[in-house]
Amino acid sequence: MSDTLLLRAARGESVERPPVWMMRQAGRYMKTYRDLRDRYPSFRERSENPDLSYEISMQPFEAFQPDGVILFSDILTPLPGMGIDFDILENKGPQIGDPIRSISQFSALRHLNPAESLPFVGEVLGRLRQTVGNQAAVLGFVGAPWTLAAYVVEGKSSKNYAVVKAMAFCEPELLHKLLNHFAESIASYLRYQIDSGAQVVQMFDSWAGQLSPIDYDTFAAPYQKKVIDLVKQTHPHTPCILYISGSAGVLERMAHTGVDIISLDWTVDMAEACARLPKHIGVQGNVDPGLLFGTPDMIQARVDDTVRKARGRRHILNLGHGILPGTPEENGAAFLRAGKCVMDRLRGEF
């Protein structure tokens, strides 16, 4: 069975066109998802019941045939396996029942054993791989140590991250212990996902963009690198993607973490990002998800512009963040269709 387009592109092989998928492609913009959510209102049930997670993961593939199928889960899913309980409430987001703010709480944490605490993840990834075969790549994902720490210290989403930053600047030793714990556990989780069927993996450090460059170098980058280094020790050929929201100020720093591909948000021009990154680093994303509220012609024009600017790079076409709730489904389809046909429109230019 030949390797998928997305996997070949992620490895840096020559491909006929950039592969295309959408972050959060399974979710609230799809009617089939909303109907299922109405029947199963608990997010944790939807993501931790293997039948439901598999069904949701497959919904966008069955509707639009993207080049990647990503596990339906959450970056916080591994937390209970470490002894940290959480919930995700509709319109409120993640809630941590007992935020970690003391050394005694840290000392009570367990190292993650994914096969023991997350068997449903392995089951879903295996089923996805078996179902899609060589029609699409199966993607796994995790949250990066800084972002996980931000959630478990703050106890919820935050606008200014004052609590975790207070820990960073007043109790750095405690925060470093927590970050190191997460790095080791998340590396184990990524290895488990790859062993279970994930062919490409993405690490989301969603809130690392809230750090100044000097603090990124201290509290985010070393632990991103530790995760990647540990994974590459055992799975050197699995492509790893890193995404940070608001990353324009730290792109060069991201390139030193050992990742294969950097997923760009939309606050930096694709051509400028490519000029700032080493040639061996691939690029993904960059299309403003708000564009999908526009017309199909606008979507197609932006796809063409992005592909032109990424010419000569290892490139995966994607949005610069997750697809937004309320996005018309037909516009999600238009984005994927524009990506699949982009070389027909640009062939004379390449």
Rank of each mutant, 00 (worst) to 15 (best):
residue 122 G to P: 03
residue 339 G to C: 10
residue 198 A to K: 08
residue 6 L to M: 15
residue 177 K to F: 06
residue 41 P to R: 09
residue 84 I to M: 02
residue 131 T to W: 01
residue 154 E to A: 11
residue 224 Q to V: 15
residue 222 P to T: 13
residue 94 P to I: 13
residue 349 E to I: 10
residue 307 V to P: 10
residue 64 F to W: 14
residue 178 L to T: 11
residue 161 Y to E: 07
residue 1 M to Y: 12
residue 34 R to A: 05
residue 198 A to T: 07
residue 271 A to S: 13
residue 92 K to F: 05
residue 342 V to S: 04
residue 50 P to I: 07
residue 290 G to A: 15
residue 271 A to M: 01
residue 150 A to Y: 02
residue 321 H to C: 02
residue 251 L to D: 01
residue 124 V to D: 11
residue 113 N to P: 00
residue 330 E to C: 05
residue 169 F to M: 12
residue 7 L to C: 04
residue 111 H to M: 09
residue 70 I to H: 05
residue 224 Q to D: 05
residue 136 A to S: 09
residue 54 Y to A: 09
residue 279 K to T: 12
residue 43 F to E: 09
residue 172 P to W: 06
residue 294 G to Q: 07
residue 222 P to R: 10
residue 58 M to I: 12
residue 82 M to Y: 04
residue 232 K to E: 01
residue 337 R to F: 06
residue 214 I to Q: 14
residue 84 I to E: 03
residue 31 K to C: 00
residue 10 A to N: 04
residue 129 R to V: 03
residue 28 R to D: 13
residue 280 H to T: 12
residue 290 G to I: 08
residue 229 D to L: 02
residue 99 P to R: 08
residue 256 H to Q: 13
residue 41 P to V: 12
residue 62 E to Q: 14
residue 338 A to Y: 01
residue 196 S to Y: 06
residue 182 F to H: 09
residue 229 D to C: 01
